[in-house]
Simulated scan of single mutants.
Amino acid sequence: MRAAPGTSYDAWTTVADGATVTIVCQTEGTAVTGTYGTSTVWDMLSNGGFVSDAYVNTGSDGYVENACAYVGSPARANPRGANAAISWAFARLGSASYENLCLAFTAQAYGWSYSGWNTAEIGGDWIQANGYLHTSGIPPRGALVWYHNSAGTGHVAISLGEGKVIGTSVNGGVGVASYTAHVSYRGWSVAQYPVAG
C-alpha cells in the first residue's frame, strides 16, 4: 500500500492477498501489472493509503467508486505537489519528532524549509483573512486542514481526502485521523504558504 497513487510514492504498509478491502475513491496513477491485468487505476482504501487496482478484484476494469477529489493549486506554487507531500508525511508515520511542530511538518511536507508563520493560529488567521478558508464540505486531498486549540497556537494537518488527515499529535506522533478528530475545526484551504522559504 502506498501513500499516493504511484509506484514512486512511499510504501507504508501491506494488505494480505485475498483480504477484503473498502475502496473509498479511485484515481489515475502509474500503470501496474498485477493479478487482474494492467491498470492505471489506483484505489484509496479506508485507512488513507492507495493500492493498484490491478491487485483488487472489483469485477471491473474501470472505476467502481467515485473519483478522488483533489484540492486546487495555490497562488504560489509549492516545491512539492499534493501526492509527493503526502508521501513525505507517510514516510514519517509514527515519528514523535514533530510534536508541537504541526506547521513546520506541513510546510516541510510541501517542500519548504520553514512556513514563514510563527504558529498555525497565525497561519490560519492569514488564510481566513485572505479568503482561502472553506468551512463547508469534506477537505479534498492535499488541502491544509486548520484548527484552533486551547493553547492559542492552533493546529494544521494535511488532508488525505475522504475525511482523513495526516499530521502530528495523533497518539503522540505523526498519524492518520478523521479530520474532525480535533474538536476546534476551522476549515480547509489550498496549501498556500505565501511567506515560506
Rank of each mutant, 00 (worst) to 15 (best):
L103G: 14
S169K: 15
T14V: 14
W12V: 06
G163Y: 00
I86A: 10
A11I: 07
W117T: 12
Y98K: 10
S52Q: 02
A69Y: 07
P194I: 01
R80E: 06
A181T: 13
Y132T: 06
W126T: 13
G152E: 10
G131E: 00
H155Q: 12
G154R: 03
T153K: 04
W188D: 04
N57A: 14
Y147R: 04
Y179A: 13
G34C: 05
V183D: 14
Y147V: 10
F90C: 11
T14P: 00
L101K: 15
S97R: 12
A77C: 08
S97G: 14
G116M: 04
A177H: 08
K164T: 10
D10Q: 13
G163H: 01
S95T: 11
V56G: 02
S115K: 05
D61P: 03
A69C: 02
T20E: 15
Y147T: 06
N118V: 08
T38N: 02
N66P: 12
G163W: 02
V174S: 03
V71Q: 11
D53I: 03
R2V: 07
G37W: 00
N66Y: 07
R186P: 03
F90D: 07
H148N: 09
G163N: 06
Y193M: 01
G29V: 01
L160Y: 00
V71E: 14
G131Q: 01
G111A: 07
L160E: 12
S87R: 09
W188L: 14
S52P: 09
G94S: 04
S8Q: 13
L144D: 12
A75I: 08
P79Y: 03
R2L: 04
W146E: 02
A191R: 08
G6H: 09
H134S: 14
E28A: 07
E121P: 01
W112L: 07
C68D: 05
N66R: 12
C102M: 03
W146L: 09
N57T: 05
V165A: 05
A77H: 02
N118G: 04
P74N: 11
G6L: 06
G172P: 09
T27V: 11
M1R: 14
A143I: 09
I166H: 05
E121T: 06
A191P: 15
L144A: 15
C102N: 11
A31I: 02
Y9I: 01
T27A: 04
D10C: 07
D61A: 06
A54F: 04
T35V: 07
A96Y: 10
T33I: 00
G34V: 00
I122G: 04
A129S: 10
N83P: 02
M44N: 06
V56I: 15
T168Q: 11
D17R: 02
S178M: 07
Y110T: 13
V32P: 02
S150D: 06
D61W: 03
Y110V: 00
V71P: 13
Q108F: 09
Q128D: 13
Q26K: 09
V183G: 15
L45T: 13
T135G: 11
V32A: 00
L93A: 05
N171W: 02
G49A: 06
Y185T: 10
N66H: 10
L133H: 13
S8K: 13
N57Y: 14
N118H: 09
T168P: 08
R80P: 04
